[in-house]
């Protein structure tokens, strides 16, 4: 199973027959495994890595540190749910260290993201403070570098 997941994480466009060939399993096994992983939420979706900076689309992303009042039992999950339900929230993690949640938010402009933080995120019950860091340039995401590296010229063709 993990072998199949690693391949899909590498490129979710791999077809069942490609995955079957690369793992040495039969196609039915691959199909069943993928379906089971989807049902069990091991696979939570298929998406594409887009560098919006190369398009005309205006987009900003912020990384927000959120502190909350100490919680017991499922308190963190409850507050997390209140935060991640917002469309604007791209990712949300519970962190160790000096703050509690790391929230990644996208919007069309600095203003839009700022407004989200002040009007929606900060007032949530239990949130005691936020610190917003805007992402200025995206170099790498999901193991993919966004800068295009130059091709080496004049390679030997003899080997």
């Amino acid at each position: 199973m993990n072998e199949i997941l690693k391949l899909l994480e590498e490129d979710s466009r791999y077809t069942v027959s490609q995955i079957a060939a690369m793992t040495g399993k039969d196609e039915q096994y691959v199909r069943d495994t993928v379906r089971r992983c989807e049902e069990e939420h091991i696979i939570n979706g298929y998406t594409t890595l887009v560098d919006w900076d190369r398009t005309s689309e205006e987009s900003v992303t912020a990384f927000i540190e959120v502190k909350i009042t100490p919680q017991r039992d499922d308190g963190y999950d409850r507050i997390a749910r209140r935060i991640y339900q917002y469309e604007e929230v791209e990712s949300l993690y519970l962190m160790s260290g000096s703050f509690d949640f790391s929230v990644i938010v996208t919007g069309k402009s600095l203003k839009e993201v700022s407004r989200f933080v002040s009007e929606k995120l900060a007032p949530i019950e239990g949130v005691t403070s936020t610190a917003t860091h805007f992402i200025m340039k995206r170099y790498k995401d999901k193991h993919r570098a966004f800068l295009v590296e130059p091709e080496q010229e004049e390679r030997s063709l003899f080997v």
Partner: peptide, 10 residues
């Protein structure tokens, strides 16, 4: 190895 299997199968 993955690519080896892919090419061989193909």
């Amino acid at each position: 190895d993955k690519r080896r299997k892919l090419l061989l199968t193909g």
